[in-house]
Structures are given as structure tokens and as C-alpha cells.
Amino acid sequence: MLGNNIPQSLSDKTFLTVNYAILTLFALSVLYPLIYVISASFSSTEAIMQGRVWLLPVNPTLDGYKAVFEYRYIWIGFSNSLFYAVLGTALNVVMTILAAYPLSRPNLDGKRFFMLLLVFATMFSGGLIPSYMLVKDLSMLGTRWALIIPAALSIWNAIMMRTYFKTSIPGELLEAAQIDGCSDSKYLTRIVIPLSGPIIAVVALFCAVGFWNQYFAAVIYLNDKDMFPLQLILRDILIQNEVDLSMLSNVGEVDKRNGLRELLKYSLIVVASAPVLIVYPFVQKHFVKGIMIGSLKG
């Protein structure tokens, strides 16, 4: 975009050409693993076992996806993750607004102290074991709440939202509303929240992706497989290689079984990432906006 109308020197032209070439190569190298996995997931078990997949699907079949659909725990995990993501995100959005709005008000007594309290909590933590003991003492161990309640608020998000409130909502609005006798809580629900669509969307997106992708909390807090989020089921299959083949119909000889195991993994990677990757192009600009707001110093 820079200097488009000015004749360029030869060396600059060369530079730009090389620049385009490097960027293209780089983008391709990011893309290749993704394309490979998608292609492998549509290939046949024989093609996978013989290593004949390079770029495009070989002997295309839907066997892998069929196996994914038959694998009961994948569905359980899927619906569990949906539950955690929806409930956790809703709770987070409410908590974030409640934390951010009072702190965005100028001359609220004790504001500096509260901010310090929040900022310090982002820099220092009691650690894994004390947090675990807390969850245990609250009798949340082994329940679904253990994945939601301890993650009910992200302080970074609250600070980000506070910056948005401070910079994007004119103070005159508050004065006008106060003159008309509007209370603080009414002002928040009638004026601030309707004006804050973009930042609420950003916070909701960050949270939803976070809940969808998290697995460690489930590792330490849950033991009932029926409550496991998808990521934990994925870990068992993809990384610990624990595939319960009895859940799949028509598995014949050993060769076929091993092939199906591999194929299932590729299809699973696609199925697990698809929800986020399909939504992402549409919400990309919100994420970008979120980063920008977050980087402002409040």
C-alpha cells in the first residue's frame, strides 16, 4: 500500500517480488498440514496404511467419519463440551460486565485498590495444589461445576472490557442519565450494555474458544468418563492411542483394524476442529478488535 504511485527502483521491485514469494511459501507451509489431515481423513484405510496419501484423498471413502459417528464417547464428549462452553461463557460474560463496569467509572472510591487486587492476581498465583484443594473443599471434585465455577471470570477480559467502557462510552451520557434520575444498574442495562455489543462479542468468543479447547481442568477434577469434555476424549484417542474398537461395527482382520484406528484419528482431528474453524472466518475481525482493545493501556 505504501508508495503505490511513485515509480519504484529496481531493487525495491526485486525486494517486493521476493517478499511475495516468501509470504506465499510461508502460507503454504502453514496450510499443508491442515490439507494433509483433511485429505487423509477422506482416504481409504489401505491408502493410509500403505502411505499413499500426499496431498489429495486417495480412494475417497467416508469410513473414517463413519467410525467417528459410531464412537459413542465422541458424542458424549461433544455434547459435554457444548454444555461447558455455553454455560461457562454465559457466566463469564455476566461476571466480566459486573467486574468491568464499576471499575470503569471515574472517581469510584476504592477503585485503585480493586484494580490492584485484580492486577496482582494475574501476576501471582497460589499454584496448582492450593487451587485443587479449594475445589475439593468446595465439594466440586468430580462434578461438572468444577470445570465452570473456578473459571467463571477471566481478569484479562475484565480489564479489556473496562478499557472499552472507558474509551468508547462518552461520560456525558452518564451525566445526562443521572440528571434524568437513572440509577446505576439501570444505566448499565439500558445504556452501557446495548452500546457494548462488539466487546461483549469478543469476550464471549474468547471464552467459548477457551472452554471448548481446555482439557487440563477435566484431567484433575473429573473421573467419570460420561462427564469428560471432547478434548479429554481426544487426548485418549490421539495421544494415548486408546481406541475402543469394540465400539465400531464390522472391524475384521488386524490390518483393517489398525488402518481404521489411524483413519479414525484423522477424521477426529477434522471433526474436533471444524466447529471453531468454520465459525472463525466470520468472527475473525472481532478477535482482531479484541486484541487491539486489550493492548490499549487503560
Binding site: 502453514v30 490421539l238 471453531v276 474453524l277 478477535f287
Partner: peptide
Amino acid sequence: TYAPHFISVVV
């Protein structure tokens, strides 16, 4: 290049 950012660490 943004896309892989949203893939979970397990995947």
C-alpha cells in the same frame, strides 16, 4: 496464518 491459533492444544 491465523487459523491454527484456534486449534486446541490436544489436537
